[in-house]
C-alpha cells in the first residue's frame, strides 16, 4: 500500500490519473454513438490484450489460442442465457471458470512443451476450437451464429444506450490493468519473469515453474472469457468467425506487442493506438481497399519487433518515463570494474 501511495505521488501518475479521468468522464459528454463505439472497442481489446499479456508477455509463453478462451466465454454465457435464462452476470463467471479449466487442462497436457512447440500446440488448439464451433451445430448453430434477444434489462445485461457498455468496458479495462499491476508487483510476476528469462535458472532458485505457469494460464484464460461475454452482450450476436477465429489471437498479440510486452500499460496503449486507426481506415476506405489495414498492421508488427522490441510503453519506460515505479535517487556513476573488485 505504501508503495502504491509513493507511486501515486510521482508526476507521471498524475498524468495517468488525468488520462483515466478523461476516459471516465468524456463518454458522458459524447453524444455520438460512433465515438462511444470507439471507446467500447478500445476498452474491450485493451482488456483482452492485457489478458493475453499475462501469459505471453510476462511468462513469455506464446499463446495463439486466446480466441478459444474468448469464444468459450462468449458462447457459454450466451448459451446459458438462451437455454436456461441464466443472467450473463453469472454466466460470465461460468464461462470464465470453464475457460480457466480448459486453459489448465491445456497447460497440463502441454507441460513438457517449450517455446515454438507450445506456440504450435496452442495454434492447433485454437484452430480445433474454431472447427468445433463450426461443426457442433446442435450446440452452437455453426456458422449461423447465435443472436441474443434485445430486451434491455439489468438482468439480461442488455441496455438501450451505449453508455452502460462504455462503463462496463472501462471497468474491465481498468480491472485488467490493475490485475497486471498486482501481478507485476508480486511474487507471481517475479516468478513469471524468471520463468520467461530462463527456466533452468528459475528452477535452481526454487521457483516452482510448473505451478506458476499454470496459474498464469488460468488467470489469463479466465479474464479472456469474461471479456468474451462482454463482447457477446455488446454485439448481441456471435458466430465462430467473430469470436473464435485464430486472427483474434493474433490481433490481441499485436496490440500487446506494439504497446509493450510484459508491461502493465503496454497492451492498453496498443489498443488505444490501434483501434482508432482501424476505425478510421475502415471509415475512410470502406471496402475499396480490402486488406489494407491488415497490411499496415503486419508492417507495424514487424517494425516494432525488429526495431523497438520493448514496444511503445516499454521504450518510454526505458527512457525514464516511469509511472509505476518510485522515482529513483540518482545513482553515482558506475565505478570501474577494477575499483569494484579491489573494494572487497
Amino acid at each position: 500500500m505504501k508503495q502504491l501511495i509513493d507511486t501515486l505521488q510521482s508526476k507521471q501518475a498524475i498524468v495517468l490519473l488525468i488520462v483515466f479521468l478523461t476516459l471516465a468522464i468524456a463518454p458522458l459528454f459524447i453524444k455520438n454513438d460512433f465515438y462511444l463505439d470507439g471507446f467500447i472497442l478500445i476498452f474491450l481489446w485493451g482488456a483482452f490484450a492485457s489478458a493475453w499479456n499475462i501469459l505471453s508477455g510476462y511468462a513469455g509463453m506464446v499463446s495463439l489460442c486466446h480466441n478459444a478462451f474468448f469464444g468459450i466465454g462468449a458462447y457459454t454465457s450466451t448459451l446459458l442465457f438462451l437455454h436456461y435464462g441464466l443472467t450473463p452476470w453469472l454466466g460470465m463467471f461460468v464461462g470464465g471458470l470453464l475457460a480457466a479449466c480448459v486453459g489448465l487442462a491445456l497447460g497440463v497436457v502441454c507441460f513438457r512443451l517449450r517455446s515454438h512447440y507450445f506456440a504450435l500446440a496452442t495454434l492447433a488448439f485454437g484452430e480445433v476450437s474454431h472447427i468445433v464451433a463450426m461443426t457442433w451445430r446442435s450446440l452452437t448453430e455453426g456458422a449461423e451464429g447465435l443472436a441474443l434477444p434485445i430486451q434491455p434489462s439489468l438482468y439480461n445485461v442488455s441496455f438501450s444506450g451505449k453508455l452502460p457498455y462504455v462503463y462496463m468496458g472501462l471497468f474491465l479495462f481498468l480491472a485488467l490493468i490493475a490485475v497486471s499491476y498486482a501481478i507485476e508487483h508480486s511474487r507471481l510476476g517475479y516468478y513469471l519473469t524468471a520463468f520467461r528469462e530462463n527456466e533452468d535458472a528459475a528452477r535452481a532458485l526454487g521457483v516452482k515453474t510448473g505451478r506458476v505457469r499454470l496459474l498464469a494460464m488460468a488467470i489469463s484464460s479466465f479474464a479472456s472469457a469474461i471479456i468474451g461475454t462482454f463482447y457477446a452482450q455488446y454485439f448481441v450476436y456471435i458466430d465462430p468467425s467473430s469470436v473464435i477465429r485464430i486472427q483474434i489471437s493474433i490481433q490481441v498479440a499485436l496490440f500487446a506487442i506494439v504497446g509493450g510486452l510484459g508491461t502493465v500499460l503496454g497492451p492498453a496503449i496498443g489498443a488505444i493506438i490501434f483501434i482508432p486507426i482501424t476505425i478510421l481506415l475502415r471509415a475512410k476506405l470502406g471496402t475499396t481497399l480490402p486488406g489494407l489495414h491488415m497490411v499496415i498492421y503486419g508492417a507495424i508488427l514487424i517494425l516494432v519487433l525488429l526495431y523497438m522490441p520493448k514496444g511503445i510503453y516499454g521504450t518510454l519506460k526505458q527512457r525514464g518515463f516511469k509511472i509505476f515505479e518510485k522515482p529513483r535517487k540518482n545513482l553515482a556513476p558506475l565505478r570501474s570494474e577494477i575499483e569494484v573488485s579491489s573494494r572487497q
Binding site: 513469455g60 489494407l292 491488415m294 508488427l301 514487424i302 519487433l305 525488429l306
Partner: peptide
Amino acid sequence: KTIGASVLTQIFVTLGLSMVIQNLVLL
C-alpha cells in the same frame, strides 16, 4: 534480425510477414 531473438519475436515477425503478404495479394 530475428536469429537469436526470442521465440515470440520470431513467431510474430513471420506472422506479421504472413499478414502483409496475404493482404497485399488481396489488395
